[in-house]
């Protein structure tokens, strides 16, 4: 009988052979923290228009396929000048939003005047967040999010940027994360394929295409929900709505669908 604690609850050496102690030695393997996302948010969509940006994401926190939390706001305002939309892990989203909150308090040290504009533009914020994500992925402990940062760049032009858990970044006149990058992005490109086209679009057109895409995503994304948040970022500030509902959906045609092939009744 082997009384060493290492042997407790383990197979007998005389039956299974000696225990492989490399299992106990943490130095013999790469460090690994990385889990998996648990409570998750699905796609985020954003489009530029002539005076700003429109961004949207639904209010669902999924737990696998289970629609567990139905009131998870995934759009976060930063200093009334930018909005960050999160898809991916909700606990990491909370970590990042708290971090951003602290950042914005630190920004207010420099000037606490109500009418003074934020020093950090959305473009700056996008860079900052991407470095944060890249640093964590390099520590083999990624923040499991893909986010869109929207607002304005340093030249006061509308800005839409994407940053993911690997630290990959890009910008475009329209962007979508997750399944939205497959289902919504092609539709968004018909609205505006280039910055020049986006500069000709109105706020109403931008909101309309976002609403249409949210509808398509609700039809085809099994991790989506009917209620969503929509924010318009303009030079006047952020107009945030958190309990929008999809409108004018089309379901009645189901009436014409009978059987799965030749059946007619």
């Amino acid at each position: 009988m082997d009384h060493r604690p290492q042997a407790w609850g383990r197979p007998r050496d005389d039956v299974y052979g000696a225990y492989d102690h490399s299992f106990m030695n943490t130095n013999s393997h790469p460090n690994q923290h990385t889990q998996q996302p648990l409570v998750t948010g699905t796609s985020v969509l954003a489009v530029k228009y002539k005076d700003g940006v429109v961004i949207a994401a639904d209010n669902l926190g999924s737990y696998g396929s289970f629609a567990r939390f139905t009131d998870v706001k995934r759009l976060h305002t930063f200093q009334d000048t930018s909005v960050v939309g999160f898809s991916g892990d909700i606990s990491d989203m909370q970590y990042i939003t708290r971090h951003l909150h602290q950042k914005s308090i630190e920004e207010s040290y420099a000037s606490s005047s109500a009418n003074k504009k934020s020093r950090l533009s959305a473009a700056n914020l996008h860079t900052y967040l991407s470095k944060m994500l890249y640093r964590r992925r390099s520590k083999m402990d990624p923040l499991w999010n893909h986010m869109l940062v929207v607002g304005f760049d340093d030249d006061e032009k509308p800005f839409v940027g994407s940053a993911d858990l690997l630290g990959t970044t890009f910008t475009a006149p329209t962007l979508a994360t997750g399944i939205g990058s497959m289902l919504a992005q092609p539709l968004l490109r018909t609205y505006a394929g280039t910055d020049e086209e986006a500069a000709e679009r109105t706020k109403e057109e931008a909101i309309k295409v976002i609403q249409e895409c949210m509808k398509v995503l609700f039809y085809r994304d099994a991790r989506s929900q009917e209620t969503y948040s929509l924010a318009v970022v303009s030079r006047e500030g952020v107009e945030m709505k958190t309990s929008e509902k999809l409108e004018n959906m089309s379901w009645a045609f189901a009436d014409r669908i009978k059987g799965y092939g030749t059946q007619t009744v």
Binding site: G61, S91, Q94
Partner: peptide, 10 residues
């Protein structure tokens, strides 16, 4: 507080 450590008010 579910598995990942997120915080939800309900």
């Amino acid at each position: 507080v579910p598995l990942g450590g997120s915080l939800h008010k309900e």
